[in-house]
Design a binder for these strands. Sequence first.
DNA 1: TCTGAAAGTTTAGCTTT
DNA 2: AAAGCTAAACTTTCAGA
Lengths: 151, 151
Amino acid sequence: MNTLDQRIVSCLVANARSSYADIGKVVGLSAPAVKRRVDRLLDTGVLRGFTAVVDPEALGWGTEAFVEVHCHGNVAPARIRAHLEPLPEVVAAYTVSGAADAIVHLRAADIHHLEDALERLRGLEIIDRTVSTVVLSTLLERSPEPGAGSQ
Amino acid sequence: MNTLDQRIVSCLVANARSSYADIGKVVGLSAPAVKRRVDRLLDTGVLRGFTAVVDPEALGWGTEAFVEVHCHGNVAPARIRAHLEPLPEVVAAYTVSGAADAIVHLRAADIHHLEDALERLRGLEIIDRTVSTVVLSTLLERSPEPGAGSQ
DNA sequence: TCTGAAAGTTTAGCTTT
DNA sequence: AAAGCTAAACTTTCAGA
């Protein structure tokens, strides 16, 4: 993982479908050399894969919320995960420091669907109490810049 | 945007680098037919683009936090956005209902870098007060399933 | 790491349903 | 209006150097 790899990763984050030849032009390598590095980045897990960025509105997922989840007593993270997995409205979930046990990011079609998802979330046996914050607008959404970290 | 398009989008979310021929095999179309649909989905904005999924740890971004931001009086969302944009640690930001004005998702190399980023965030003239929640572990992270919405 | 050649992919124009 | 077919241009992916 050096500067060259970071620049290749940057290119792929910007456009996952760009050809190895195009990436090579940017970073100054031949297409086969770029491919070998991408393969190695996939093998080592630096690159997890390639995905399409979809407009949530277009798919009918226009309403979002962040939910602080408070569990009954002590619940293992794996158990929280297992309970959240089956809910398709859960797009992300994190265990956190502080008063709450987890933060859950929900995406739903509209307010009624969100209410329904929240009800199903609250119905989980491990969950005691939730505090919801509805998203009004998305100001910013981006991937972290490779190399900007202080590693 | 019909069932066929949704299945194509699903394929691309699962692997943005799969060939049109491979997608065609899954959805039952020829490669050119798939390409025409993907081009249209890009034109209409349903597909925003294609990106690489990167392991944040591997890039030196192992520490995350969610920060509730409270502004001084009334601040327009565009103005909040303009102030957050220059901070590379801000990976997402949303205006929200409730007591806070915005929720900011931060990613940093470690706790010290996170502290530094928080300090820079708090230093913004529009910001009055922040409440931070540090992420301990990521339980789940996924894209919303196309077609699961109730549109 | 590069070159070079075979295999596969993209993409445009044209025909068919 | 949208799918399939064909064929040229390009990309990937192996060798071997």
